[in-house]
Nucleic acid binder design. Sequence first.
DNA 1: ATTTCAGCGTGATGTAGATCACATTAAGAG
DNA 2: CTCTTAATGTGATCTACATCACGCTGAAAT
Lengths: 194, 194
Amino acid sequence: MLFTISEMQTKLRQHIEKIIPLTDEEFAVVFSHFSFRKVKKHQFLIQEGDSVNHSYFVVSGLLKLSYTDANDKEHILHFAMEDWWVSDYKAYFTKAKATMSLDCLEDANVFCLSLDDHNKLCGSLPKMEHFFLTKSHYGYIASQQRILSLLTTSAKERYEQLLIQYPSLIQRVNKTLLASYLGVSRETLSRLSS
Amino acid sequence: MLFTISEMQTKLRQHIEKIIPLTDEEFAVVFSHFSFRKVKKHQFLIQEGDSVNHSYFVVSGLLKLSYTDANDKEHILHFAMEDWWVSDYKAYFTKAKATMSLDCLEDANVFCLSLDDHNKLCGSLPKMEHFFLTKSHYGYIASQQRILSLLTTSAKERYEQLLIQYPSLIQRVNKTLLASYLGVSRETLSRLSS
DNA sequence: ATTTCAGCGTGATGTAGATCACATTAAGAG
DNA sequence: CTCTTAATGTGATCTACATCACGCTGAAAT
């Protein structure tokens, strides 16, 4: 799927306007704070140890945010597809080094927002602070739900929930990655789905 | 520990001023949006099925936010002590019915903020939107860390992390509750700590 | 002062899921 | 078109943790 910049711009605008209405002038201000980047499969936007300079809005494609533990086992915090915001936010907001990595599973188009530009944008357009606050609330709520699902349900139930919630992911992501998102071994997931 | 209203007011102000400075007039505006409530041990601030009218700032005392599953097993999302904000935020922001409950483990003093007042406050004092955004970011980051800890570590490791991170909790909360926060059975936790 | 019960430890046993090992197939790379 | 590597399924075994069952202790309720 190919997009022109102007189509992608529209996607970003529609995304924001789900929460706050914007005039053309306002959107122009918003848009001027972003930069654009194409990412190819297997490319990293963030690697462990990097400074994290941007938060990313995914226009198209698929990314994964993951953490690799001391035993070299990868754990997936979440996937990020169309219309998602993603970064190692701990590192981003605290200006610390990344402990997570963000890499590309399917060629992607992303808009990039530096912390500096984020702050300037909120300064010049207070509505945007409201937009980000709303987004952040939803992100928080989603994480709480994920915690609950890890605390209360079995691997099988989590897999079934995922099938219902994000049916498309199962087509797009291999089982090994799904397993490490669900918090089970590849082998166990294989046995569950058969 | 007893506090006067004015001491508690100061606590709230100091808490906010860790993030944004406020003039006396501004703080007066802020404060006028809160109400105050004393809560006794075993009292509920939120019960499953309730409408969730408030977000709570804990001045003193100890609360727990928990979810009870289909088998009547309680799972603790988190404890909330001095200086924490707590509510069933999903229900609060979406005006849905509570799926969680919030109840008091040690007599507490809390300031209460309705969604309506939250919005009015942000409207009249945009700085406060920034304050809440910052808080929300930290909440999000903390949940992500919790997810990672559930994905990557054993019950024993999680217990040890907790000992380091919140040593005071171990004194204040009984083992059964600690276990359901850590996501293990009471019996297993007992074996771990001995 | 006796009763009741919450909190905690601990043994015996059951089980979901991890780990190891190997075979098959599909898909990129030269 | 072959060669190599990634993705998946499946058996055998191991282990962390759950569940069930019981006894002890100390605090609160009568």
